[in-house]
Amino acid sequence: MTRYIIRRILQSIPLLFIISLILFLLLNNIGDPLTMMGGRNPTRPDDRARLARQLGLDKPVTTQYLYWLIGNDWTMIDVDGDGIPDIPGERLGVLRGDFGTSIVTRGKPVSEIIWDRIPNTLLLMVPAQIFILLFGVIVGVYSALRQYSWVDNAVTTLSFVGFSMPIFLIALLSIYFFSVLFQRWGLPNLPANGMFDPRVGKTAGQVAKHMILPLFSIAFIDIARYSRYVRSAMLEVMSQDYIRTAKAKGLKRYYIIFIHAMRNALLPIVTLVGLDLPFLLAGAVVTERIFAWPGMGRLFLDHLQRADGPVVMGIVMILAVFVIFSQILTDIAYAALDPRIRY
């Protein structure tokens, strides 16, 4: 087992290397961050040349990648444009934990910019995942036990609707209904954007209130899907010999369902959560955009639009590490929970 884990971790190193190379090449050509440096005015030619030099954007892509990877503190850089290197570089490179500095928000390291936002995204996504899991299991087990009942059929259909629903549609509909129409009808309505009301301040109650609509939108899409997994897993387990044996032995129904069947049916679901979590984070891009949630997805969009390579690169690399990490964890979990699997 330990050997398997070490092997997986070692395998992930070239993988991350390939990912970083692909991304760096792409991000090098997504636009020119210096163009927007002038705000509402065009960037002045002399400023453009100076900034390119100071930010190292005039270097060839390979050099820029090298600096990004291992830093430039081992070499001298030219800051005043006379062609003679003046001062040693200060970047440490990703391998030493330095993701560089944002081109847009200069003065703040990329890692700090991203860390500021990750808690907000998790605050939305972790409860969402818990809701999805909780309701997914309840609905799934229920519809498995009542196979082909109307509830079961409704869940099957809804799961497809949820699976096919673009998140912006459910988000716009829920805002229109719970925020706009409720207000129009004089009912208590829910806030449609932001994380809290500045008048009241960032209190737990405020944040919870602002979380309802985004949570609902995210959960709507996935609860139905999860319940479908749970349902089929339950159906499969319920037809196994040991359940029949348990029934034959005259064990109580709830005991069979909750102790024997559910435990086994939920094993694959645990691993599903592991694989889904990183993609939930990704789904944040659209959700955070619509609900004005100050998370990582919005950060990504803001900085991508201004061609801020270091920040975009940092976000995607952190996500990639997260994906690989949860894949490894999922594999381990699966092996540990299912005695039939050996590595």
Partner: peptide, 9 residues
């Protein structure tokens, strides 16, 4: 030259 300012104009 060691300050990366947006514009020196």
């Amino acid at each position: 030259p060691s300050n990366i300012v947006t514009t020196s104009y």
